[in-house]
Amino acid sequence: MSRLLGIVRRDLHLALRQGMDSTMVVTFFIIAVVLFPFGVGPEPNILARISSGVIWVAALLASMLSLERLFQTDYEDGSLELLALQPVALEFTVAAKIIAHWLTTGLPLIVAAPLLAVLMNMQAEGFAILIVTLLLGTPTLSLIGAIGAALTLGSRRGGVLLSLLVLPLYIPVLVFGITAIDATLAELPARPHLLILAGLLVAAAALCPWVGAAAIRQTLDS
């Protein structure tokens, strides 16, 4: 457990010292959402109608942007091999790196989301549920994305490939995140959608570190 926290702390330190990563992700998130009022016109009703979807899709793309760096830098300077040689299962290391990734990208996105909800003219009832769905959903995105990041290590044109692999797997999270918000706005119970979202998170948390570790092992073996 202390080793796991150690890796989380190391990655957080690296992210904070190198600075720009989280800020860039949040900036991308904001700019991507701000493009929509220009694209569809500033009609308040239309913006309110599409707000949940636009914010979720932009958050999904923003969290995918930083995935490539999840293992890439460690792989290039060789520290990934040292991390794999630790007397602790590689699965824990992968889980720790995913936690660090979520803390540096997912959490800032959630903090920025209410501001964007205001800009997109979302109804006030939707704010709380937007935060809840993002809290349940973005960790799942980081977990699934870690598989893609581990699989594309050392490949040609990694970034584009990564999005091709990861985006189809993101769709269920996106669907249930948005239906939960829309159900609340339509004054229907959001609980079933939230439960499925939580179920996806639990299943991903149980499985993804194993798959990611298997992918990293086959990378380091060859």
Partner: peptide, 24 residues
């Protein structure tokens, strides 16, 4: 198919894409 063809070493591509196929 994209992941299978993305590596210079075909063996790497086969192993990486196998993991992806199982996830999918």
């Amino acid at each position: 198919m994209a992941l299978d063809n993305a590596f210079d070493d075909p063996g790497r591509g086969a192993r990486a894409s196998s993991i992806l196929a199982l996830v999918g």
